[in-house]
Design a binder for these strands. Sequence first.
DNA 1: CAGAATCCCTGGGGATACTG
DNA 2: CAGTATCCCCAGGGATTCTG
Lengths: 118, 118
Amino acid sequence: MKKLQCDLKTNIQRQLALKDAIELLSGKWKISILRSLYLSGPLRFKDLTVVSGGITPKVLSSELQQLEENMLISRTVNNTKPVTVSYALTNYALETLPVIEALVKFGLQHRATIKSKI
Amino acid sequence: MKKLQCDLKTNIQRQLALKDAIELLSGKWKISILRSLYLSGPLRFKDLTVVSGGITPKVLSSELQQLEENMLISRTVNNTKPVTVSYALTNYALETLPVIEALVKFGLQHRATIKSKI
DNA sequence: CAGAATCCCTGGGGATACTG
DNA sequence: CAGTATCCCCAGGGATTCTG
């Protein structure tokens, strides 16, 4: 009984945590952005528009701001001739790598099973 | 060079796979539904509305249909007095567990770090 | 180059009520 | 109970243009 209550409690905690995580990472581009930064290291605004493939500046700007608010990326301005800005993963963002890896793995499996069905 | 091209190619594959996975699991409730089914085993429609907490029948119905289309859940009708319907995870859906677990883990960490900041 | 400003628009999601 | 039928709404996204 004690055990059961404890389990219930932790499950609720986990349910809430799950919702939080989904909320943080929700959006059409955030996870792809994180993965790009992980693979390529710090990238500039323009690079991200290219790498992400098809995202418009306004939307990218929005996504980046949200990611920065949640401490998942850092923004640094470089004093170059025309000003450039670099975005990089924070250490904290490394915690999201397992999520991304799991998603990629699942996606690959899914593509494989789909292909075998056709 | 050969190696680099190969890496690029697999990265593109992975990028696409990632997009697919995100697409499949996108939605405000899908992942929570999957987790509930995983924890509790097969559940009926009504149960899912309760467990998910606040989802309306129309939306639940929509989410379930999409999940079924993607072979992540199965729908079975039981010949009971008033008809009942059970939803269960497919074997295939088990592949999503790492994703869910990773999300929960991240969510818990996030809550911890947030709490420590306040 | 890095973005802000504007305008637009679809659909995901919700509230409510109804049916078999 | 297990949904469908309607109606509704706004926020997430997008296209385009403009500025420092």
